[in-house]
Design a protein around this nucleic acid. Structure first.
Length: 563
RNA sequence: UGGGGGAUCGUCUAGUGGUAGGACGCCGGUCUUUGGAGCCGGCUACCUAGGUUCGAAUCCUAGUCCCCCAGCCA
């Protein structure tokens, strides 16, 4: 599946980049994907990764992977590793250009001294509380700090002592000297350095002062020669500050910041805070819980990188806030898996069927097509015998209108096998069907003389004595509502869908699945796409439902119920 | 309220003065040994009100609504 570059829809950022190249403003394209290693990547990041790496690929440039690790208190090497894995799994290559903001700490420090020397930064010894009070409000200007006019010498001395570890956390900060009355709050002398006597996962205890995002990010970009620094909308009013930092620090290079709208999906959560909350409160099984929109979750769920990339291209890039329907994501995984997933028969909720006129003890090996979309995938043998399992849903003692499957006196085709007719139903004391008695027509075997006889439905089945037991996990949306409609003071976890995970046991699958390896993806015919879960290693074949097949009957049934 | 952004089918997204297009979704048909896939057809969209113009989603004016910003987080 190679999508020609030209078929990817254009967007305003691609246009800007192309124009910068055409006008000669830029000689090449250097972008970057700058995650903070304090959480796992999710599909929203995939959109950004696709954009940044895609731009680089399109123009034969390069996209750096840079860890924005300027906050020692939240970052962890576990995340650094996971992020690299995910970016690679998505199919992107940073060609050795992996960087860390923490590697720039010394240079960043030198730039800060320069700022002080130029009179553009000062040490403020106010408390965090006082700084907040003097910042003003959205409608009122802030007021100058009493330390704002310290001499350059005093600032430099103080800053050096901050660095030397002479002061306690929170006692001093380095601030830009811009304009406390600016209508843009980000320009009211933003904090560039704070004291944090914390051990950084990479620099250890070498530093006790750490740069803030607003200071470190533009300079990291400049240091790396980034041409287009792409970020999300909430940084739009940081752009004047970004430009200020690059200019005042006399940085060797001027990147251009461009903002786009982040991805939102219906019925799920995308914020790091909420994802972390789900994991920490054990509301999900971990970062790779298949219900999560994390890359690791989607991967375990059975999503392919190709489908995720195709989705990210299809949704486009713009500046308006947007929430994409989950159905869109599901479309792309179905489209991909339809082409590549091998078909197998699996009965999730088994109902025993005995074919009375089929010889006891006889077993036939029937030919089954592995993938009708891919003739090269070949065929396989599937065992058939007198006792089989079919899906409970495929039998109704009292069939509703338009129900074409098995019911007393009616015929259906067993896929790749025979046409069978329901003769009687065996029920338990509660009146539930526990077994169905059928007869078969030997002439109707696939490939046989009456194979062409038309019946209204074909259902899947597995031979009882050959079937393998399996667990199957079905997933539904994580959330019942869209959180945008939930008041901020409500506990959002109350809106979690209690049925987001359904575990089925005692499922019966065809014997060929014994060779299924963890991660293998299949289409369970007539049902959906499933993949082998890592828990299979514990001894029992376990599947995750990636996405169900589109189901016309379910719609008919729903419509009938709604009258 | 100050500042920064944004409003086009149900949901995304094109279009930048000349027939409002595409994708998802939905509805119908066709085909089918997957009620899958495919194929064919259809679906009350330019935030509002004025204005400029032969002609406006695009330009102008005035509104309305939505999002972001008052961390020593990113």
């Amino acid at each position: 599946m190679t999508t020609p570059e030209s078929s990817i829809p254009s967007n305003f950022i691609r246009d800007i980049v192309a124009e910068d190249l055409k006008s000669g403003k830029r000689a090449q394209v250097v972008t970057r994907f700058p995650p903070e290693p304090n959480g796992y990547l999710h599909i929203g990041h995939a959109k950004s990764i696709g954009l940044n790496f895609g731009l680089a690929i399109e123009h034969h440039g390069i996209c750096h992977l840079r860890f924005d690790d300027t906050n020692p208190e939240t970052e962890d090497p576990e995340y650094v590793q996971a992020i690299q894995d995910d970016v690679r799994w998505l199919g992107f290559d940073w060609h050795g250009k992996m960087f860390f903001a923490s590697d720039y700490f010394e240079k960043l420090y030198q730039f800060a001294e320069r700022l002080i020397q130029k009179g553009r930064a000062y040490v403020d010894s106010s408390s965090a509380e006082d700084i907040r009070k003097r910042r003003g409000t959205l409608t009122e200007p802030g007021t100058d700090s009493p330390h704002r006019n310290r001499s350059i010498e005093e600032n430099l001395a103080l800053f050096r002592r901050m660095k030397a570890g002479e002061f306690a956390d929170g006692t001093h900060v380095l601030r830009a000297k811009i304009d406390m009355a600016s209508p843009n709050i980000n320009l009211r002398d933003p904090v560039f350095y704070r004291i944090r006597k914390a051990t950084h996962y990479r620099t250890g205890d070498a530093w006790c002062i750490y740069p803030s995002y607003d200071y470190a990010h533009p300079l990291s970009d400049a240091l790396e020669g980034i041409t287009h620094s792409i970020c999300t909308l909430e940084f739009e009013d940081h752009r004047p500050l970004y430009d200020w930092v690059v200019e005042q620090a006399d940085a060797p290079h001027r990147p251009r910041q461009i903002e786009f709208a982040r991805l939102n999906l219906t019925n799920t959560v995308m914020s790091k805070r909420k994802l972390l909350e789900l994991v920490e409160k054990n509301l999900v099984s971990g970062w790779d819980d298949p219900r999560l929109p994390t890359i690791k979750g989607l991967r375990r769920r059975g999503y392919t990188p190709e489908a995720i990339r195709a989705f990210c291209e299809a949704i486009g890039v713009a500046k308006r806030d947007a929430t994409i329907e989950m159905a869109m994501l599901e479309h792309f995984i179905r489209e991909d898996l339809n082409r590549r997933a091998a078909r197998v028969m699996a009965v999730l909720r088994p109902l025993k069927v005995v074919i009375d006129n089929y010889p006891e003890g006889q077993v036939e090996e029937l030919d089954a097509v592995n993938n009708p979309e891919d003739p090269g995938a070949g065929t396989r043998k599937v065992p058939f015998s007198r006792t089989i399992y079919i899906e409970q849903d495929d039998f109704r003692e009292v069939p509703p209108p338009k129900f074409f499957r098995l019911s007393p006196g009616k015929e259906v085709r067993l896929r790749y096998a025979y046409i069978v007719k329901c003769e009687s139903v065996v029920k338990n004391e509660r009146g539930e069907a526990i077994e169905v008695r059928c007869t078969y027509d030997p002439e109707t075997k696939s490939g046989g003389p009456q194979a062409g006889r038309k019946v209204k439905a074909t259902i899947h089945w597995v031979s009882a004595k050959h079937a393998l037991d399996a667990d199957v996990r079905l997933y539904e949306p994580l959330l019942k509502t869209d959180l945008s409609k939930v008041p901020a003071d409500h506990d959002w976890t109350l809106y979690l869908n209690p049925h987001s995970l359904e575990k089925l046991t005692g499922c019966k699958v065809e014997p060929g699945l014994l060779k299924g390896k963890i991660g293998d993806r299949y289409q369970f015919e007539r049902q959906g796409y499933y993949c082998v879960d890592p828990d299979t290693a514990k001894g029992l074949l376990t599947f995750n439902r990636t996405v169900p097949l589109r189901d016309t009957w379910a719609k008919i049934e729903k419509a009938q119920q709604e009258g």
